[in-house]
Amino acid sequence: MNVFRLAGDVSHLVAIIILLVKIWRSKSCAGISGKSQVLFALVFTTRYLDLFTVFISAYNTIMKVVFLAMSYATVYLIYMRFRNMYDSENDTFRVEFLLVPVIGLSFLENYAFTPLEILWTFSIFLEAVAIMPQLFMITKTGEAESITTHYLFFLGLYRALYIANWVWRYHTEEFFDQIAVVSGVVQTIFYCDFFYLYVTRVLRGKAKMILP
């Protein structure tokens, strides 16, 4: 555990809490892609199956359970509790275009051809692209509420900090997880354009982020 990794995990936690609290307090999930949230719940579910097979640390176990619980709570709020506010007309990204290549790739490129390893690889690849329905939705509507952009900012920050964590681990413990690093870098690239808009628009006091 290093400071980048810890800060990355905290950013990830903050992002998920921001989204959950926003939906709960506004009693609305307008502007939120339910599809992205289902994909994230799928990411956590397939990655954290090792909860049943290995014990890494109390921190690891607790964080995994918290992420799982919060991602399912988010999906529940969007599709059950506040489903009449769900903006399905603008959440039209075709997730099968993500799932099919990701499933194929996880069978081709993995560390071991075992069910748990293939599912772990699937979760890593899927996480890299899971935000695309949300970014697609923002592009389609041309705007995002500032709280949604704060959520995306912390999610992107988490990815950037994980890259710093991998650089640190590479130099201090010669750790290099090729699958995680390559897809992590790809994932971070998706946030770059958004980061630019966030800094130039949202942080300068706009209530909404309107796309140029």
């Binding site: 090792d50 097979t53 560390y111 290099f176």
Partner: peptide, 10 residues
Amino acid sequence: EKGEPPHDEL
């Protein structure tokens, strides 16, 4: 070198 399970990151 390839990383080996268990995966200790979240």
